[in-house]
């Protein structure tokens, strides 16, 4: 097994890999939108079912939006990098997101606790859904700050992927 194959097996926990995607994304809402449209096409081409593509798009949108809104907080010209690997045999989608923006406050990921919805209409939440969605739809979520970069790793289980 050569080095590349070894790394692929490691990323997928021993399951088969197919459909690697790596892309640099302009860290703006429009850049995120364009990246998601491309990823939807690539993941569909890699054989993911429509429901699984939708789940992956939802998670990747929240991860990238968080980087744009918080890590970069309006910096112009910044980029983030996304690497995806489709792992067959129950492995789901393995994701690594990297950016050079500000560190997570406290060095840890937000808890993403669900909102209380048994409130009056004027008190309903208009934001803060992102981390709850990410935590609900991912496994093995880890955050690491190293060399002035944020590294987020996680897996999106894709039940329809064989």
């Amino acid at each position: 097994m050569d080095d590349a194959a070894l790394r692929a097996a490691a990323d997928c926990g021993g399951a088969g890999a197919a459909g690697d995607v790596s892309l640099a994304v302009t860290a703006t809402p429009q850049g995120v939108r364009e990246a998601l449209i491309r990823l939807r096409r690539d993941l569909t081409a890699a054989g993911l079912a429509p429901d699984d593509v939708g789940t992956a798009e939802m998670v990747l949108a929240e991860v990238m939006n968080n980087i744009v809104e918080h890590a970069y907080a309006g910096c112009s010209g910044a980029q983030l990098e996304l690497r995806l690997r489709v792992c067959r045999g129950g492995g789901g989608l393995s994701v690594h997101a990297r950016d050079t923006g500000a560190a997570m406050p406290g060095g840890t990921l937000p808890e993403g606790a669900p909102h209380r919805l048994d409130v009056g209409m004027e008190d309903l939440p208009e934001g803060g859904f992102g981390w709850a969605l990410i935590r609900t739809l991912t496994e093995d979520l880890t955050y690491r700050r190293a060399g002035g970069e944020n590294h987020l790793n996680f897996r999106v289980p894709l039940p329809e992927l064989i």
């Binding site: 809402p29 998601l36 798009e57 939802m58 949108a61 929240e62 939006n65 209409m121 004027e122 309903l124 939440p125 208009e126 934001g127 803060g128 859904f129 992102g130 969605l133």
Partner: peptide, 16 residues
């Protein structure tokens, strides 16, 4: 075919 958390927040805001 796609609403993210910002879009969801905007729909809630539109109701409020």
């Amino acid at each position: 075919d796609f609403v993210d958390s910002s879009g969801l927040g905007a729909i809630v805001a539109a109701m409020k």
